[in-house]
Design a protein around this nucleic acid. Sequence first.
DNA 1: GTCTATAATCCGATAGAC
DNA 2: GTCTATCGGATTATAGAC
Lengths: 184, 184
Amino acid sequence: MDTAAEAVRRRGYNGVSLDQIARDVGIQKSSIFYHFSSKSELIAVIFRRFSAQIFSFLDHTAGNESRAGDRLMAYIIETGSFVEEGESICMSIALNIDRESLQAEIVDDLVTFHQTNLAWLTDTFELGLKDGSIADIGNPEEEANACLALVDGAQLVARAHRDSKLYDQATLLLRSRISVSNPD
Amino acid sequence: MDTAAEAVRRRGYNGVSLDQIARDVGIQKSSIFYHFSSKSELIAVIFRRFSAQIFSFLDHTAGNESRAGDRLMAYIIETGSFVEEGESICMSIALNIDRESLQAEIVDDLVTFHQTNLAWLTDTFELGLKDGSIADIGNPEEEANACLALVDGAQLVARAHRDSKLYDQATLLLRSRISVSNPD
DNA sequence: GTCTATAATCCGATAGAC
DNA sequence: GTCTATCGGATTATAGAC
């Protein structure tokens, strides 16, 4: 499943073959069908696992970080980790491109994933309005939408040039609005 | 070629088949090979055509609009036109996802396309520093990188929810920094 | 320049031995 | 639970008639 997840993030749904995944793992592709009934199901399972990991991260961050600036900074760093060496992107982006090849169930999960991220970011910017840890906040919902677009697009830019530093550069202006706490 | 271009923007390189393109056009798929030697060549040609159109737009805009704010606004609107009804995206994004399935030549063209856009945006923000038509500019190169990431990501967000209005919302904060001229 | 027909390959999926 | 073998379908590409 780890191998399949990485393959999807690097080559998209239509770009991966079960044969290639099986070869990377060191088994025969027919063995995959003992664990998953179809390619669709395999992708559905790994996306739900990925989605659950991110939701867990969001809950954990909201529970542990009391300041909006710290929450947002953790989000930007976490999302940047998907870029790796500029060869990969977040799975939801990769699957969204190949959306028309996916079954309706996974497409619904993709929408839910996006909406959950947007709602979390909106809450974060609303908190930022109160605690002042993020500068120049306009409408929280608009900020959340722009922030999600920025971190997604920053992954694309970094991948386009195979350089993870471009993710950091593209998000620099957003990060400069954050006054992080210094817990000692 | 128009049909092929739209198909790539909606389904990605690996998601389109020559048979489907031929059926949409109303010919047989074998007829495609009279005009193009391979699927790779077809995609290379339509991307170069797309790339030339955008480069022409950049030149035209820089020549006709003297204010940085007007140039940037035109760029944001032009890029937003790729979203259509939330079903499509810019061809460079779609091809960049399926990069590992493409021949090296097209990948080079993709990098050139991205760099040209970045350079144009950097020039625009440098002009904006001088003429004051864009507010709160930090480093022009960082602004360009963040701007490109934002408009690319805004297309993804709009497509994720099949709603072109989300592109407008995600770019609203950037557009609010622009003081457009009112030519009368 | 487009057609029919078909070759060659790849892929998802199944059957059955071990 | 993994293997070998294979089916059936889709896809890229070619050959040759018109």
